[in-house]
Design a protein around this nucleic acid. Structure first.
Lengths: 112, 112
DNA sequence: CTGGATCCTCAGGGATACTG
DNA sequence: CAGTATCCCTGAGGATCCAG
């Protein structure tokens, strides 16, 4: 395997596509929360520090339209809405893992 | 291997750290260009579709302050400035690879 | 509880012109 | 070539209030 990160035009486009779907400060955090098992709107909101209801709502919609999240309404009172990740979202675990590892590595590099 | 992407608070923080350093639409593109071997300011600018001189300059500075890029001035006329990635930046190849793979996968998921 | 609607702020980023 | 300086604008995102 090459030690280079060679990227063709197509590869670069794929990277940009990925970044496009995961853009903003919230989407990955939301997906991580869901992959950790959180489901209801308020649970997710509580889990993510600093997110507003408005943003959470908006981001969940975008994630849903990108097939990363499934929204299930349970007809009851008070209303219950459950969010789950799709299998497609689960394919993100390599991305998340890589970012996590690199985050740790970077902190050592900068601080240590 | 677990199929879950369990993230502790610390892990989440690491992910956020990583995203923080790579934020915006340009930084990863710049790093990819440099990892491909490009070096001079104008070469990078030409390589990245749509970036302005102003943004490229700003982003390069941020990357430099995060130890991801090295700036070398060659005293000559016309001026020559060479940018290279640090070994730390090279550790990003797993992140880039994961994003690339997922980008392709995502396109198939959405379009196909 | 689950959000929608509205209003507002601010930083990311574009365009252009200019310097060494 | 390698940037800086200015001006400007859009859109991400926050705050608050309201409805089912």
């Amino acid at each position: 395997m090459s030690t280079y990160t060679q990227c063709s035009k197509e590869d670069l486009r794929a990277v940009k596509d990925a970044l496009d779907v995961l853009n903003g400060r919230w989407k990955l955090q939301i997906l991580i929360a869901l992959l950790n098992g959180k489901r209801r709107f308020k649970e997710i909101a509580r889990d993510i520090d600093g997110i507003s209801d408005r943003m959470l709502s908006k981001e969940l919609k975008e994630l849903e339209s990108n097939h990363l999240v499934t929204r299930v309404v349970i007809d009851a009172f008070p209303p219950v809405v459950e969010y789950t990740t799709t299998s497609h979202a689960k394919s993100l675990h390599k991305v998340i893992h890589a970012l996590k590892e690199w985050g740790y590595y970077h902190r050592k590099e900068i601080i240590g």
